[in-house]
């Protein structure tokens, strides 16, 4: 029974929580034109986890700390260099740091490979707990602040002119995304996590007739494709990250070719 929990339910539930959360976050990232933030925070988180392993501290903590630090520095970096170059820069920084650590420290090489492949089947109990905590936090945050994120994107001056505090919708959201991505790369791999943040929201933007329905469609697509990928990877004994990314990509091709575009009538 315990073995069954270890081998099946623990990774299955961890991934399911992330498959619901990441597309939701991806919707708001897409709204803000920041989908690439997922790749940047994810890769920085991966570098942090590898660094933590090299230093002998828990990898989850290292990944979270690095990713949150990147999100915390974002406003300052944006003031320093406004424009779209920030996230590619952070991604490249994280990528080079990760590869150099893996190449030079034999002790972290195994984790490095797992972070790129997405070895969901070896997640720890702590990661299962963290995934559900992040899901609960994410849903609660978006229920409370989702409208502010929308208003700030659509009518930013109206939002500010009303004297409403913008920080919960700005830095609060960045921190939530960074923490979620740091956790997600350790379970799904960098590209698997990015695919969940990028593809279901993209499809929801194309297909949904309203924002409310997009909030339903994106996590549903994320969950369904994740479930299919989980079974496919398990039965074919394949690394999970690439199978997830492939399933999502094929789903996108299929739905964009044959799906009904978002009109209500």
């Amino acid at each position: 029974m315990e073995l069954q929990l270890e081998l099946f339910w623990r990774p299955c539930l961890t991934g399911a929580a992330l498959a619901l959360l990441l597309p939701l976050l991806g919707l708001y990232l897409r709204l803000r034109g920041e989908s690439w933030a997922a790749l940047a925070y994810g890769q920085i988180g991966a570098a942090g986890a590898l660094g933590a392993l090299a230093l002998g501290i828990p990898t989850l903590l290292g990944g979270l700390a690095a990713s949150l630090m990147a999100a915390g520095c974002k406003p300052r970096l944006e003031r320093w260099q406004p424009g779209a170059g920030l996230f590619p820069l952070l991604f490249l920084l994280g990528w080079s740091a990760s590869l150099l650590l893996a190449a030079n420290l034999p002790a972290v090489e195994g984790l490095g490979a797992a972070l790129f492949e997405g070895q969901l089947y070896f997640v720890s109990r702590e990661m299962l707990g963290a995934a559900f905590v992040m899901l609960a936090l994410g849903v609660a945050y978006l229920r409370r602040t989702g409208w502010a994120l929308l208003l700030l994107s659509l009518h930013p001056v109206l939002f500010l002119a009303r004297g409403m505090p913008a920080w919960p919708a700005r830095i609060g959201f960045d921190l939530l995304v960074a923490a979620s991505l740091a956790l997600a790369v350790m379970c799904l791999g960098v590209m698997g996590a990015f695919a969940l943040v990028f593809i279901p929201p993209w499809l929801a933007f194309v297909l949904a007739p309203s924002w409310r329905k997009a909030l339903f469609i994106a996590p549903l697509l994320g969950f369904l494709t994740y479930s299919l990928a989980f079974v496919l990877a398990l039965y074919n004994d394949q690394p999970f990250g690439p199978i997830l990314a492939l399933t999502l990509t094929l789903t996108a091709f299929l739905l964009l070719s044959f799906g009904k575009r978002g009109t209500e009538n």
Binding site: L150, L154, V157, A161, R162, F205, V206, S210, K213
Partner: peptide, 21 residues
């Protein structure tokens, strides 16, 4: 309370947002 319409209109291209919303 203040309402403010700027010259920049909401960026709604590709956004699944209805008029009601």
């Amino acid at each position: 309370r203040l309402g403010f319409l700027t010259q920049a209109r909401p960026p709604i291209a590709g956004l699944p947002l209805s008029g009601k919303e």
